[in-house]
Design a protein around this nucleic acid. Sequence first.
DNA 1: TTGATGTTTGACCATATGGTCAGTCTCAGG
DNA 2: CCTGAGACTGACCATATGGTCAAACATCAA
Lengths: 213, 213
Amino acid sequence: MSEPNTRTSSRIQRQNREVILEAALDVFSAQGFRGATLDQIASAAGLSKPNVLYYFASKEAIHLELLSGLMDSWLAPLRALDPAGEPLDEILDYVRRKIEMSRDYPRESRLFANEILQGAPRMAEAIEGELKSLVDEKAAVIGGWGAEGRISAVDPHHLIFSIWALTQHYADFDVQVRAVLGPGHDPFAEAGRFLEVLFTRLLTPAVGQTSDI
Amino acid sequence: MSEPNTRTSSRIQRQNREVILEAALDVFSAQGFRGATLDQIASAAGLSKPNVLYYFASKEAIHLELLSGLMDSWLAPLRALDPAGEPLDEILDYVRRKIEMSRDYPRESRLFANEILQGAPRMAEAIEGELKSLVDEKAAVIGGWGAEGRISAVDPHHLIFSIWALTQHYADFDVQVRAVLGPGHDPFAEAGRFLEVLFTRLLTPAVGQTSDI
DNA sequence: TTGATGTTTGACCATATGGTCAGTCTCAGG
DNA sequence: CCTGAGACTGACCATATGGTCAAACATCAA
């Protein structure tokens, strides 16, 4: 009886854990935690259920592993926002990075959305800790830019929320977006263009007037 | 043996069905379809499980009833957008109505979000039908306004998406928003102000330039 | 080849859950 | 006060599901 999840992980260990996590991401993101079953995950991974449980202690453990790995990559784009950069460019770059994430990692986005929708029972800590500090920090930067008149002065927290909402919408509500647009559209490309306009207009300081709206 | 869900519904019938739907909305919106159990619903309704099933044929039937009732109220705010009105006001009114819905009916918003997230298995029809037609219709109106220069010309479909994303975010991601803002905030009031600025800036035609961005 | 370590699985278990049913209780109308 | 249609429930069932375990199998260094 050996504990697989130790430092002595062989090639096959790492590989199978990876395969399981990949399969679990598929299933959890599509069905939610309670909707997903170990059989589905095992089947998607091409392994037997007991074998899956040989690599992970429980269904919950798989889910937690996915979530914990998620927060970091989720925060990365915001972390990259450079206080020393050109304000509008920095924010537009952030928007671009977030759309790319929605396009390239929609399952991760949905996994996250599922979790928050259910009240974030397993992420409350990370949200009130890591996430909040980073947002507060970057919001202060953006608020500073606004106060200096380098961009329009808008509530920085809600600006960040709006970026999250607008970009993640295209991953989380993908089916709806595609159904409404109909065939022959590239939602993410169009979104990229639309959002660039939106945030440019929102943040470009009006020439000759400080903030009358 | 009588079928309760006929036209001959007594006072107690209507009342209990209402109580059950109310309880089910609580549970489904918080746990998702698969996460919700009949026991939870029955308990929340203050009824026994068999009694719940005396009023509804199945768990699925309750869920469907909620969803079908939802689409109409969900479309109402967009329906109210008046082609004969003042463009910017019409759109800002729509935004206001949608925020009020997020504030006053967050459970409905989450129920909807849950459904779309899971790929909208039970709403695909309504989305490709009712929803798409209405959006196409109103998008044409907004597109017309843009072409006439009464508002900035932006992609009308994505404009509507952005309104959905920005308003529903505050209902669906409520816990995250509140966690990040910290205590002493009224997310919906702040969001209302922020979004008014956002859409005003986006849609107000730049004076002296047609559309150079 | 062999033994030890690591990997895999069929069979099984306990519990949760959607749903059924026979029968009991309630109460409005006669 | 009766009575029967309507409202309700305890007990039960079948299945799904997370998880366990002993035993079989694979791999590889000695």
